[in-house]
Amino acid sequence: MRVIATGLDFPEGPVALRDGGVLLVEIRRGTLSRVSPDGEVSVVAELGGGPNGAAIGPDGAVYVCNNGGFEWHDRDGITAPGHQPADYIGGRIQRVTLDGEVTDLYTECDGRPLRGPNDLVFDAHGGFWFTDLGKSRERDNDTGALYYAKPDGSSIVEVAHPLVQPNGVGLSPDGTKVYVAETGPGRVWCWDVEGPGRLGERALLHGFAGHQLLDSLAVDGDGNVCVATLVTGAVSVIAPDGTLLRQVRVPDHDPFVTNICFVGADSRTAYVTSSGRGVLYELEWDSPGLDLEHSA
Rank of each mutant, 00 (worst) to 15 (best):
S172E: 03
A80W: 06
A181R: 03
V272F: 08
G210Q: 00
N118T: 11
P151E: 04
Y271V: 01
L245I: 15
D266S: 13
R75Q: 14
D222A: 15
A5W: 00
L23T: 13
E26A: 02
F208T: 03
D132M: 02
V231E: 06
R28F: 09
G30E: 13
G264R: 01
A234F: 05
F130G: 13
P162T: 00
G57S: 09
G111D: 03
V169P: 01
Y271W: 04
G57W: 04
F262P: 02
L32Q: 08
Q212P: 00
E182K: 09
F128D: 04
L245M: 13
D286L: 12
Y106E: 08
P162G: 08
A124Y: 05
E40V: 15
D74P: 05
C109M: 02
D87Q: 13
L204Y: 08
G20S: 12
L244C: 05
E194K: 11
L213S: 12
E293W: 10
D220V: 11
R187D: 15
H125V: 07
A239P: 05
V180T: 10
W72S: 05
V44W: 04
R34E: 12
A61L: 08
A218C: 11
A86F: 02
R112Y: 04
T243M: 07
I260E: 04
A228L: 08
F256M: 12
P288S: 13
S136E: 14
P37L: 10
I4Q: 10
D142I: 04
H125F: 07
S275K: 05
V15G: 09
D266A: 14
C261F: 02
A61E: 10
E71P: 10
G221P: 10
A124W: 02
G207Y: 00
W191K: 01
D291R: 03
Q212K: 14
L120G: 03
I78V: 15
A234R: 07
Y88V: 04
P251D: 14
L204W: 09
V219W: 09
G197V: 03
L17A: 15
L23S: 10
G69H: 04
L105I: 13
T97W: 08
W285H: 15
V263Q: 11
F70K: 06
L47W: 06
A239R: 09
V219A: 09
L245K: 14
G21T: 01
L244S: 05
I4D: 04
G207F: 02
Q247M: 14
A209N: 12
A149Q: 07
G207S: 14
V180D: 10
G7W: 06
P255Q: 12
F122E: 07
P58M: 13
R187S: 12
V250A: 05
P185F: 05
T103D: 11
A5H: 00
H73S: 13
G223Q: 09
Q212G: 05
T143M: 12
